[in-house]
Amino acid sequence: MAKSHVLLLVLLAMISSPVLAQNQAQGAKSADPKKPTAQNGKAKNLTHKGNTLIGQENFVQAEANYRRAISADGQQPEASYNLGTALYDKDNYLEAFGNFKQAAEVASTKETKHKAFHNMGNVHMQNKEYERAVESYKQALRNNPSDEETRYNLALAKELLKKQQEQNDKNKDKKDKDQNKDNQDKDQQKDKNNQGGDQEKKDDPNKPDQNEGDQKQEKEDQKKGDGDEKQEQNQKPKDQEEQKKKQQPRPNQLSKEQIQNLLKAMQNEEKKVQQKIDEKKIRGRKIKTEKDW
C-alpha cells in the first residue's frame, strides 16, 4: 500500500489554519522488529487486511480487522495506530486517543512513537486542549526532530494557547469587575436604606429609632426584673414576720385556759364579797331580847 500524508483542516475560531495529521496506515514492512509468534503472525495478517480495506474505503470492515488484530496481539503498535486513525477520521476522538496512546506505549521504534504522539497532539487540538497538544507535539519531535508537519502544528498550538490564556484573563477580569460592581451596588443600596431610615427619623423626631427602642426596652425589662427581685426579697421577711406572729399569741388575746381561770377567780372574789356583805348584815342586825317579866 502506498504511503501518504493527509492534511486535516481544523476549523478554529481564532486562527483558521490546517493541523497536519500523520494518518497513514502502517503496513507490515514498517512494523517494529519482534520475535515471530503465531499470535504475532495472525495480528500482522489482520492488520494488513485492515489496511487493504481502508484503501478500498471499507472503513467498517477495516476497523473490525484492526480490533481483531489487537485482540490477537496487544503488543502490535500498527493495529492500534491504524485503528486510532480510522476512529479519528470518524471524529471519535476519545477512542482514537486511547489507541494512539497504546501504540506509543508498545512501539519499539522512534518513527512509530513519533507518529503516535503527533496524532495524540491532533486530538488535543480538536478538543481545544492546547497546553496538552503542545506537550504531545514536543514528544513527537523528540522522536523525530526533522518532521516539519509536527513543527508546524506545535507552533500553531502555542499560538492558540497564548490566545486562550489571554481570553481567560479577560474573562477573569470581567468576572472580577462584575463582582466588584455587584458589591458596590449592594453597598450603595445599603447606604441608601440607612439614609432613608435617618431621614424618616429626622422627619418624625418623636419616632424612636429602632435600635434605641430595643435598648430602651432592654433597660426596662432589666429594671423590671431588678424590681421584681427586690420586691421578692422585701416580701420574704414580711412573710416570715407574719408567720412568727401567727405562731405567737397576741398581747390582748387570752387563751381558753386563762379565761376559765379568770372566771373562777372572779367567782371566788364574788363569793368573798358576798360573804362580807352577809357578815355585815348579821352584825348590824338588832338582837331581840326577851324580858323575863
Rank of each mutant, 00 (worst) to 15 (best):
Gly98Asn: 11
Gly98Met: 13
Phe100Trp: 01
Lys101Cys: 13
Lys101Leu: 13
Ala103Met: 02
Ala103Ile: 04
Ala103Gly: 15
Ala103Gln: 09
Ala104Ser: 12
Ala104Glu: 10
Val106Lys: 01
Val106Phe: 05
Ala107Thr: 07
Ser108Lys: 14
Lys110Asn: 07
Lys110Pro: 01
Glu111Thr: 06
Thr112Asp: 02
Ala116Glu: 07
Asn119Lys: 07
Met120Glu: 05
Gly121Val: 10
His124Met: 04
His124Trp: 10
Met125Thr: 01
Met125Ala: 04
Asn127His: 07
Asn127Asp: 11
Asn127Ile: 05
Lys128Asn: 11
Tyr130Ala: 01
Glu131Ile: 07
Arg132Ala: 05
Ala133Cys: 08
Val134Asn: 08
Glu135Phe: 11
Tyr137Leu: 03
Arg142Val: 09
Arg142Trp: 12
Asn143Glu: 10
Pro145Arg: 02
Asp147Glu: 06
Glu149Trp: 14
Tyr152His: 15
Leu154Cys: 14
Leu154Tyr: 06
Ala155His: 12
Leu156Ala: 03
Ala157Thr: 01
Lys158Thr: 03
Lys158Trp: 00
Glu159Trp: 00
Leu161Met: 03
Gln164Ser: 07
Gln164Ala: 07
Gln165Leu: 12
Gln165Cys: 10
Glu166Leu: 03
Glu166Val: 00
Glu166Tyr: 00
Gln167Tyr: 02
Gln167Phe: 02
Asn168Arg: 13
Asp169Val: 04
Lys170Tyr: 08
Lys174Asp: 09
Lys175Thr: 02
Lys175Leu: 10
Lys175Ala: 07
Asp176Ala: 13
Asp178Val: 09
Asp178Cys: 04
Asp178Arg: 11
Gln179Cys: 03
Asn180Ala: 11
Asn180Ile: 06
Asn180Arg: 13
Lys181Ile: 07
Asn183Thr: 09
Gln184Pro: 08
Asp185Arg: 12
Lys186Ser: 15
Asp187His: 06
Gln188Glu: 08
Gln188Ala: 08
Gln188Pro: 01
Gln188Gly: 03
Asp191Trp: 12
Lys192Arg: 14
Asn193Tyr: 01
Asn194Arg: 12
Asn194Pro: 14
Asn194Gln: 08
Gln195Pro: 01
Gln195Glu: 15
Gly196His: 00
Gly196Arg: 02
Gly197Thr: 12
Gly197Met: 04
Glu200Lys: 09
Glu200His: 06
Lys201Ser: 14
Lys201Asp: 13
Lys202Glu: 10
Asp203Leu: 13
Asp204Phe: 05
Pro205Met: 09
Asn206Cys: 05
Asn206Lys: 04
Lys207Thr: 10
Pro208Asn: 09
Asp209Leu: 02
Gln210Arg: 10
